[in-house]
Simulated scan of single mutants.
Amino acid sequence: MKTLLLDIGNVLVGFDFGRARPKFQAASTATGDPLERLAELKYDLEIGAIDGDAFVSAGMKTLGFQKSAADFRRIWEEIFTPIDAMWEVVLKARATHRLLLLSNTSDIHKDHLFRDYSIFRHFSGGIYSYSSHCLKPDPLIFRKAIEEYSLVPEETLYVDDLEDNVHVAAGAGFAAVRYDPAAHDAFLTEARALGLRLPED
């Protein structure tokens, strides 16, 4: 395998939008679940129909958010935790594989992750739903990755936490494996069988 193509959420960082719920509730006048009220805007954000600034502005109006735009953005950002075991894989694999990303994400989260999480500096590029205007498991986003980075799917190991995405990637010719942070050793066994090579191997 020449390239390691990784999803972000629940592969490199865990995420929980539920962490934002009580913070939004405490600072908003709207009733009901704030995440449900923001769901359509979130979809538009992650598919690139609106950018981060437009999302924040519309989200503040939707919730009756009483603090600043910076506060709203910070709440939306602070949902991540590092997955240390996969960070160790990346730090080893950078010596043996080209590292790329393929993720359903927004400009807000991508910018936050690259700014505040050092692991992302080791990736040479990525395909993101907000800039590609399509979301996994749409096969189009995998074709965009192939075209943008001249990938040979059979020489690329794709890792994702969702089985549907793994299935579509495999259908596009990638060596593809599902990642479960609770079963990291099992992932390593399967990934090595598919061609992952780390310096210790």
Rank of each mutant, 00 (worst) to 15 (best):
K2R: 15
T3P: 07
L5Q: 07
L5S: 03
L5T: 06
L6F: 13
G9T: 06
N10V: 04
G14A: 13
F15Y: 12
D16V: 01
A20W: 03
P22N: 00
K23E: 14
K23G: 02
F24A: 11
Q25R: 11
S28W: 01
A30W: 01
T31Y: 01
G32H: 03
G32P: 05
D33M: 03
P34Y: 00
A39L: 08
L41E: 07
K42H: 13
Y43E: 09
D44A: 15
E46D: 15
I47L: 13
I50A: 08
S57F: 11
G59C: 12
M60K: 15
M60E: 10
T62R: 11
G64R: 02
G64P: 05
F65N: 09
Q66E: 14
K67I: 09
S68V: 02
A69Y: 03
A70I: 04
D71A: 15
D71Q: 10
D71R: 13
R73L: 15
W76F: 03
T81W: 07
P82D: 12
D84H: 05
A85Q: 15
W87P: 02
E88T: 12
A93D: 04
A95Y: 11
H97A: 07
L99C: 07
L99S: 10
L102K: 03
T105R: 10
D107S: 13
I108S: 06
D111Q: 09
L113K: 05
F114Q: 09
D116K: 09
S118M: 11
I119E: 08
F120A: 02
G125K: 03
Y128M: 08
S132I: 13
H133P: 13
D138I: 02
P139V: 03
P139C: 03
P139R: 01
P139W: 04
L140P: 05
I141C: 11
R143I: 09
I146E: 07
E147T: 14
L151H: 05
L151M: 02
E155R: 04
L157R: 02
Y158V: 04
V159K: 10
L162N: 12
L162K: 13
E163T: 09
D164L: 14
D164S: 15
V166N: 00
F174N: 05
A175I: 00
A182Q: 13
A183E: 14
T189E: 14
E190Y: 07
A191I: 00
R192W: 11
A193P: 04
G195L: 07
L198E: 01
D201N: 06
